[in-house]
Amino acid sequence: MSQITTTFQPSASLLAQLARLPEMSWAELKAEHQRLYHAEPAVKHRRFVERRIATRLQEIEYRHHDRARLERNQRRIRALVESGEIPPRARKTAPMPGTVLSREFGGEIHRVAVAQDGTVEYGGQRYNSLSAVARAITGTRWSGPAFFGLRATKESK
């Protein structure tokens, strides 16, 4: 199986900021915490503060890369405010690119890797869907998401 990477690559700036945290003085850490959280650190525990700062820096960096999720959440919030009820989410069973799914079948472990373009790789071949892979493994028609445990089967409901 070829190696699959995610589409998101952290910026050099983010990596540099994260690498610098252990070298910062306590005063610098407090100032950075103040800048990011608009408050002094609640505890005087260096590793805890470094981790909180690292988390916030990553949140800031990553939030720019999933506008669709932000828009879906904003629609759900508006619906909640307007109706008082949270609308059900459309369940997307497609796993994220880079995900490796495993399933034991016929005494063998079968691994499938999800590619960036949404196809899946199994046994050195590309398939358009998990269902196509499940059919190749079992020889019968299967729901790929159910076969790989991403969705309940009729028997398990």
Rank of each mutant, 00 (worst) to 15 (best):
Q116T: 01
F147T: 07
L57E: 08
A68K: 07
T99Q: 02
T5W: 00
E104M: 07
A39N: 06
R20I: 13
A68L: 12
R141M: 15
I137V: 07
S2H: 04
M1W: 06
Y122K: 10
A68I: 09
A68N: 07
A152C: 09
R51I: 10
F147D: 06
E71R: 11
G139R: 03
A90H: 15
L130T: 05
L57W: 02
L36I: 05
T93W: 14
I60R: 03
V100D: 01
L14R: 05
R141P: 05
S2K: 06
D66G: 02
F148Q: 06
A54Q: 10
H110L: 04
R89C: 12
R63Q: 08
T99W: 02
S143L: 11
T138D: 03
H33K: 03
A31W: 09
E71S: 10
R51H: 12
R111S: 09
S25G: 13
L130M: 08
Y62Q: 08
T7V: 04
P95E: 02
R63L: 09
V133K: 07
H110M: 05
E71P: 04
A132T: 11
P95H: 01
F147M: 11
P88N: 13
A12G: 13
R46T: 03
V114L: 01
T153R: 09
G124E: 14
A134T: 11
R69F: 08
T93Y: 15
V43I: 03
P87R: 12
L21F: 10
R141K: 15
I60P: 00
Y37N: 04
